[in-house]
């Protein structure tokens, strides 16, 4: 079930350079959101028609609280960064499929987040613990954010070497000789491409969260497709909708 609702802002604070944490009272959505799903956030400026897709960073179903963490990338996210307590913002969600938590049960799961791909990995870690053996590898350019919120063991990689392994997430995985049975990942396409290759070499399962421009967010407009290896059942061509069949795909099933 998808909901479109007005959410009340509980707080919006900066947690890094140009990175904001937005807490919303959104009962319906928070109550049914699964990790790896996202919400469409609508602008209050009528000139900006299209929703901004933002991943669920944390969802507290009991209290109906949704946490989104985003980076200012343009006018829409800049507007959201200025939201204050008691402001209202319109959302549709939860959208997309989310990570296949069943694949991780009683296995060693490696959660990999790169940059602004880190937020969805937080709720994923929380839901997998303690049944699964969870470890996170987080990649940053320089300044860290959100790393302390993770309930599991965290390995850090930074491009400038200011913390953890100097380099990218794969450098950290190799340096720390981290072993896993399954990888869940979200981050830039280059990172996902490298993880897809790594998982193939290791013979382990790998699921990645993809990004594409969206207009409807609900599967109607076909804006957001990625290329698939097999003919997709819905589209009847080798295209899958990131907003509906995704955003999480088995890396072997799609072209990255």
């Amino acid at each position: 079930m998808k909901y479109t609702q007005k959410a009340k802002v509980l707080g919006c604070e900066t947690i890094g350079k140009n990175i904001y944490s937005l807490r919303l009272q959104a009962d319906d959505i928070a109550g049914s959101a699964a990790p790896g799903q996202f919400v469409s956030v609508y602008s209050n400026d009528s000139a900006r028609m299209l929703p901004r897709p933002i991943s669920v960073c944390e969802a507290d179903g009991e209290r109906g609280i949704l946490r989104l963490v985003f980076r200012i990338a343009g006018a829409g996210t800049e507007e959201f960064s200025k939201l204050r307590e008691d402001d209202e913002v319109r959302l549709t969600g939860p959208l997309g499929n989310g990570f296949p938590l069943g694949e991780a049960a009683r296995r060693r799961v490696l959660l990999v987040g790169g940059g602004i791909g880190i937020p969805p990995m937080l709720e994923t870690a929380k839901r997998l613990m303690p049944e699964a053996d969870v470890r996170a590898v987080l990649g940053f350019r320089d300044e860290l954010f959100l790393a302390e919120d993770f309930p599991c063991e965290v390995t850090i990689a930074t491009e400038d070497g200011s913390a953890g392994t100097k380099g990218n997430v794969l450098d950290a995985i190799r340096a720390q000789k981290i072993e896993a049975d399954v990888i869940f990942a979200c981050g830039p396409a280059v990172m996902l491409r490298a993880l897809k290759k790594y998982a193939l070499e290791q013979g382990i399962g790998c699921w990645v969260s993809m990004e594409e421009k969206m207009a409807c967010g609900i599967g109607a407009c076909l804006s957001c497709v990625c290329r698939s290896v097999q003919t997709d059942e819905h589209s009847q061509v080798k295209n899958k909708r990131v907003c509906t069949e995704g955003p999480v795909f088995r890396s072997a099933d799609i072209e990255i």
């Binding site: 299209l50 594409e212 421009k213 407009c221 076909l222 804006s223 990625c226 589209s235 061509v237 080798k238």
Partner: peptide, 26 residues
Amino acid sequence: PWEGNPTPRICETPSGMLNAIGLQNA
């Protein structure tokens, strides 16, 4: 069935949008 165009297929513009879905259909 038609495959449609490569992505990005859309972008937002002031009070509107551009699309080049390319008539993807099943």
